[in-house]
Design a protein around this nucleic acid. Structure first.
Lengths: 132, 132
DNA sequence: CTTATAAATGTTATATTATTACATACTGTT
DNA sequence: AACAGTATGTAATAATATAACATTTATAAG
């Protein structure tokens, strides 16, 4: 177990749930799962999610409106994220590829603009789904 | 004006609106704007949007739940999309950079998996916002 | 032309995702 | 102890998206 800095009660409960999950979790599914722990309202969930995203403990999968725990131990802030999404089974993994992240972090567009943040989602069929 | 293949009545109305807009449009803002043309229900909007996305006439900006017209005349299908998003004024542009799209289309992850589709969103400050 | 099929439409209701507003409490300083 | 910043609790509601069902229009094959 790595040290879990400074998370508040609700943040910790919600992070633990997402971290244990094998798939991205949606906000209301999280809510349902933490009601026994006393978190009763959507806003309590969204507030914790916002904070966890901000500090990089979780990422939002934008195309799915769902959240996964950061799988990259060195990731502190969600500034440069890339995900692999299986269009069949909906399995999502975080991609940690230093060549890719270097390439994208250094990308300069036609107008000479540099970016301080990006999010990339790849779609395809995972190994398992491809073979069936 | 380029030829607008095969769009149905509702699709054409909604495409025209999005195409004229200088910023990404949200579904319910679209709905509001086309009510005078007889499109009364959310579902009518969402169905047209789905189709327009499928055929590549528009793209969804996932992080904003909004839609913009394809700015790349050669783009037939929304298989490989990249956008520049200003975090201050929310201006969004489509990035057409052949090196970038080649790089991403050919990307193979650690597990040897190739993808048939990707969506990339870059965030930063546009020229105008940076200078103020 | 007519039959079959796919695509699009219209309509009502409802599900899902997310935020506003306001009151209170906890945590870590100085 | 006083302050500032962060977190919590609660109710209400806004914003985004889909399900289900009935009907119509467009396209193509015989």
């Amino acid at each position: 177990m790595e040290k879990q800095n400074n998370l508040s009660k609700n943040q910790q409960i919600i992070f633990d749930l997402i971290d244990k999950s094998s798939e991205p979790m949606k906000a209301y599914s999280i809510l349902f799962n933490v009601q026994k722990k006393g978190i009763k309202a959507p806003l309590q969930v969204y507030r914790a999610l916002d904070k966890l995203v901000k500090i990089g403990k979780i990422h939002k999968i934008e195309s799915r409106n769902a959240f996964i725990a950061c799988q990259n131990s060195s990731c502190q802030i969600s500034k440069a994220t890339a995900f692999s999404i299986c269009e069949s089974c909906e399995k999502v993994s975080e991609i940690s590829n230093s060549k890719l992240s270097k390439y994208l972090s250094n990308f300069v567009d036609e107008a000479g603009m540099k970016y301080n943040k990006y999010n990339l989602e790849f779609f395809g069929l995972c190994k398992k789904c491809k073979s069936t």
